Every structure is written in C-alpha cells, then in structure tokens.
Simulated assay, not measured.
Amino acid sequence: MDDQTRIEIEAAAFRRLRKHLMEERPDVQNIDLMTLGGFCRNCLSRWYMEAANEKGIEMGKDEAREIYYGMPFSEWKAKHQTEAGPDKQAAFETAFKENVTDKE
C-alpha cells in the first residue's frame, strides 16, 4: 500500500470513529471511555489539535473540541454528559493520571 492510500484509509477510519462516538453513541460517557480505554473524545480532539500544530496550523483546545464535537464543547456536555458518581470519578482520576497527565 502506498503512503497516500494509507493516509486516506487512516483518515476515513478516524472519521468513522468520530461519527460513531458523536452520532451513534453519544450515550457513551467520556469518563467511561477514559477509564476503560485510556482516552476519550477530548483526547481525540487534543490529538487533532496537536497534529494541526505540528503542521504549523495554530489551533487551541476550544477550537479543536468544536471541530471534533461539531459544536461548542459546553453545548455537547449539556446535551449528552451525565453526572458521574464518586466511584466513576475516582476511576477517572486514576486513568487520567496514567494516560493524560501534563498533556491537557
């Protein structure tokens, strides 16, 4: 497989993951993704921002989140985020420290 085809396939897979998480499974909470998978939608938007920055495109966290979520993050949270109990919050803190610390 040539590099351009590989890049196009990887981009298509990313778009499909985004669609799945944003349109088909907005009920899956970021806290659960982070606890189980070590990443969440915010991580994906951060990785998008980092890739843009590496290409010389200035992009901040809020802009990247709006691009990834398709709306301002605060709006998405109001529509889809549920309250997390103390057990979920503790598990998230552990997962965040293991996977994200010093990156947000």
Rank of each mutant, 00 (worst) to 15 (best):
14 F>G: 00
50 E>F: 03
32 D>N: 07
5 T>E: 11
16 R>G: 09
74 S>F: 07
18 R>A: 11
14 F>Q: 03
29 Q>I: 11
34 M>R: 01
29 Q>E: 13
4 Q>N: 13
95 A>N: 00
26 P>V: 07
5 T>Y: 06
5 T>R: 11
50 E>W: 07
5 T>A: 09
15 R>P: 00
98 E>S: 06
74 S>Y: 10
93 E>N: 14
62 D>G: 13
50 E>R: 08
87 D>A: 13
96 F>S: 02
67 I>C: 11
27 D>L: 06
18 R>V: 05
35 T>M: 01
95 A>I: 01
94 T>H: 12
77 K>G: 06
87 D>S: 13
91 A>W: 01
48 Y>N: 01
3 D>C: 05
86 P>T: 09
57 I>D: 15
2 D>T: 12
20 H>D: 12
99 N>R: 02
16 R>Q: 14
36 L>A: 14
97 K>A: 12
35 T>F: 00
98 E>K: 09
89 Q>W: 06
79 K>V: 10
30 N>C: 12
55 K>G: 05
87 D>H: 11
102 D>E: 15
60 G>W: 02
27 D>I: 07
24 E>G: 06
46 R>L: 07
87 D>G: 09
39 F>A: 02
56 G>T: 04
55 K>N: 15
30 N>W: 01
65 R>C: 04
61 K>M: 04
14 F>N: 03
10 E>P: 03
40 C>A: 09
74 S>P: 05
15 R>Y: 07
91 A>Y: 02
97 K>H: 06
55 K>W: 05
34 M>W: 00
96 F>I: 03
61 K>P: 02
21 L>A: 02
55 K>Y: 08
10 E>D: 13
5 T>V: 13
1 M>T: 15
93 E>T: 08
56 G>W: 04
86 P>L: 05
43 C>H: 00
25 R>G: 03
43 C>E: 00
74 S>K: 14
65 R>L: 06
85 G>S: 07
104 E>C: 14
103 K>Y: 09
28 V>C: 03
44 L>F: 03
104 E>W: 15
70 G>W: 04
100 V>I: 15
15 R>E: 13
60 G>K: 08
78 A>E: 14
8 E>L: 10
61 K>Q: 07
54 E>S: 08
80 H>K: 03
46 R>E: 02
38 G>F: 02
69 Y>A: 02
